[in-house]
């Protein structure tokens, strides 16, 4: 979750100052209505949550197994839906601060989709064809 950043400019205010006094990112990620003064931190949370959902869904879909485009459609709906509920109802962030709900929805979507496909294909092949 803590994506390291490089090349901070000397005359920029250090990002720590904005989050000083707040609980860790992990704690805030799992607490309702947390404060996110650093936008990138929240976007990182969304990003890694999507990757986790992708792995779990890939495992589930491969073991059940789900087949066809139904599986892909369900994953897309689930991935978008869970995170939408997370940032609108659980965290209740103002999505305009992040460029609208679309920006939050597409954060890490493609890589999570690819990750889901890889896990789904691998588990499905290994369990049912090996």
């Amino acid at each position: 979750m803590a994506t390291r950043r490089r090349g901070n400019v000397d005359n920029q205010p250090p990002s720590v100052s904005l989050t000083e006094g707040l609980p860790s990112v992990w704690q805030r990620a799992f607490s309702a209505k947390s404060q996110w003064p650093e936008k990138d931190e929240f976007l990182d949370v969304i990003y890694w949550m999507r990757q986790t959902i992708a792995i779990l869904a890939g495992l589930g879909w491969g073991l059940l197994p789900f087949r066809g485009f139904f599986g892909i459609a369900i994953f897309c709906a689930l991935n978008a839906g869970i995170l939408y509920i997370y940032f609108t109802s659980f965290q209740q962030v103002d999505d305009d601060d992040f460029g609208g709900p679309w920006e939050l929805t597409k954060e890490g979507f493609m890589s999570s989709f690819a990750l889901f496909m890889v896990v789904w294909i691998i588990v499905y092949s290994a369990v049912f064809f090996d």
Binding site: R4, Q51, V118
Partner: peptide
Amino acid sequence: FLYILCTMSIRQNIQKLLGFAPSR
């Protein structure tokens, strides 16, 4: 096909973990 999918998912995650991902 599998290699492309793996690269799409793995490369960006590695970049992010190593801190080389371009800033948003």
